[in-house]
């Protein structure tokens, strides 16, 4: 664990953050652009994947980097989605303003719930985080007049992005919009992870006691990280509300939190690319397994999850390293 931290020294220059994996980044972005032209009929699904990646990246910040295991990340995502949706219906349909509102909502909820959550650990923390999401879920469900309750929030009609690109029926603009937001979020996270503050997060993950001993106010650092993650999850929620022009209660549901966690661990926690690959793999498997047999896709997901835990606990992205070690030992 310590060696792991030393390996991730904070970058001296901003350029250093991006030079290492630039090839992979270019590949990923090219792939995202290529998919637009290869699968024009699946834009809706692919946009959902992009939105989920934002959500899982945010979870990675909390779980992977700071090591705080929560099962209520949907609370942050859903707050962002509902805030952006309600803002669009009643105040302004400007998408970028909506993003800001979503981010603020996610961050505010994260800050206040974090005040309670970050004091707890283990099962208590898991339960408290679930409870926060459930309370929000019930609140939204009971305030039908504002949120539409279990029918979902309808009537969102977004203005064109930057006044130029209108959201179309096929979801073309939606896809580019979600991709653009994702790229910006990813760059911000890259900077954060490489910063001294990102190192603090890793340090807290490795040993909260030692961090406390060297004078880090662990509790407040965790709240800062959680608030930041809340903002990012809120942005994800806002994008989902704007692109689908609908916010459903599921965006606050327990299943979303659990699935986000599975996606992250599938890809590999504590790696930003893990969030991307895990989400793409999980959602693709889900998409195809569910379309082949809508009732038994849980078999596939269940086996997938168990395989990950028992065979590749480091996640899919840990595989190459594991293979290398294995082969190295064989020689």
């Amino acid at each position: 664990m310590e060696a792991d931290i030393i390996r991730h020294k904070p970058a001296k220059r901003l350029g250093g953050i991006f030079s290492r994996r630039i090839l992979l980044d270019i590949c990923l972005i090219s792939a995202a652009i290529a998919f637009f032209f290869i699968f024009p009929n699946n834009l809706g699904f692919m946009t959902r994947v992009l939105v989920m990646i934002i959500m899982v990246l945010s979870l990675d910040l909390v779980l992977g980097y700071a090591g705080v295991a929560t099962l209520g990340h949907a609370a942050l995502f859903g707050s962002g989605a509902y805030a952006a949706g309600i803002f669009a219906v009643y105040i302004s349909a400007n998408p970028l303003l909506g993003l800001v509102v979503g981010a603020l909502a996610g961050a505010i909820i994260a800050f206040f719930s974090g005040l309670i959550l970050m004091r707890a650990t283990g099962l208590t923390l898991l339960m408290l985080s679930i409870a926060v999401a459930q309370v929000l879920f019930e609140l939204v469900n009971s305030e039908r007049d504002l949120t539409g309750g279990s029918d979902g929030l309808l009537g969102i009609d977004m203005d064109p992005v930057l006044g130029l690109y209108a959201f179309d029926f096929y979801g073309k603009t939606g896809y580019w919009y979600a991709l653009a937001v994702l790229v910006v979020v990813f760059i911000l996270l890259r900077v954060f992870v490489a910063s001294p503050f990102g190192l603090v997060a890793r340090g807290i993950h490795a040993s909260p006691e030692r961090m406390r001993a060297i004078g880090t106010p662990v509790y407040w650092r965790l709240i800062t990280i959680y608030t930041l993650a809340g903002g990012i999850a809120g942005i994800g929620g806002a994008v989902s509300a704007q692109v689908t022009e609908l916010v459903s209660l599921e965006s606050l549901g327990f299943n979303l939190s659990a699935e986000a966690m599975i996606m992250l661990i599938l890809g590999g926690i504590g790696r930003l690319y893990g969030a991307i690959f895990g989400t793409v793999i999980f959602m693709t498997v889900h998409h195809f397994a569910a379309s082949v047999d809508p009732f038994n896709w849980l078999f596939v997901i269940g086996i997938l999850v168990l395989l990950v835990v028992y065979v590749v606990p480091e996640g899919v992205l840990g595989l190459p390293e594991k293979l290398r070690k294995h082969l190295g030992m064989a020689k």
């Binding site: 599975i262 849980l298 997901i301 269940g302 086996i303 999850v305 168990l306 990950v308 835990v309 028992y310």
Partner: peptide, 9 residues
């Protein structure tokens, strides 16, 4: 994660 997997199965 493992116990969620078992639940799904």
């Amino acid at each position: 994660l493992a116990t969620i997997g078992i639940t799904f199965l």
